[in-house]
């Protein structure tokens, strides 16, 4: 199974980063990817013969994330309370803005978060996201629309932009 080891070593950094963006948490990402690696091993003869094994495994990670329900491995990151209404002072730095956005992302439903990660982190076009999630492109757009609306809600940079426009 040298092929498997080579493949796993080559793909792992990307898969782990991707899983971290999906789950929002290091341990959970490690768990998720571990699960996938074990499955890949068991079905390596089939997966290695696929046209794009890397894309196949990316889908496995995505599906694993979407279907994971069980106890300790299915928790969403929560690093403190999220303010309902942010104040402009809180976001004087980009760092604070990103922290706030990270927590907002953590509160999204899983499919919406997956679309955000695939679109803005993996930078995949909507048709590829739809194929990866096994849904219609219109569904991807709907998830993205809802996610962006939720992320915008009460967001300081939007408020600050509005303030500048009306000021």
């Amino acid at each position: 199974m040298a092929d498997y080891d080579d493949f796993a070593r080559a793909q792992l950094p990307r898969l782990l980063r991707y899983a971290t963006m999906l789950t929002g948490e290091r341990e959970q990402a490690a768990d998720l990817v571990q699960d996938v690696l074990v499955k890949v091993y068991r079905h390596w003869s089939r997966i290695s013969g696929a046209d794009h094994p890397d894309r196949y495994v990316l889908r496995m990670v995505t599906n694993g994330y979407l279907s994971w329900r069980h106890s300790w491995s299915a928790r969403v990151i929560a690093s403190g309370d999220v303010p309902d209404e942010a104040r402009a002072d809180d976001f004087a730095t980009d760092h604070a803005a990103r922290d706030d956005m990270w927590q907002r992302l953590a509160r999204l439903p899983k499919r919406q978060r997956a679309v955000m990660v695939l679109r803005y982190y993996e930078q995949l076009p909507d048709p590829e996201i739809a194929e990866l999630l096994g849904c219609a492109q219109s569904t991807v757009r709907a998830h993205a629309h809802k996610a962006l609306a939720a992320l915008r809600n009460g967001l300081a940079i939007e408020q600050m932009a509005e303030a500048r426009e009306t000021g």
Partner: peptide, 17 residues
């Protein structure tokens, strides 16, 4: 907001296991 989302993800890459 879209750039902020991208930046947020990239800034978290170091969290990967």
């Amino acid at each position: 907001i879209e750039n902020l989302i991208k930046d947020t993800f990239v800034a978290r890459e170091h969290d990967a296991p």
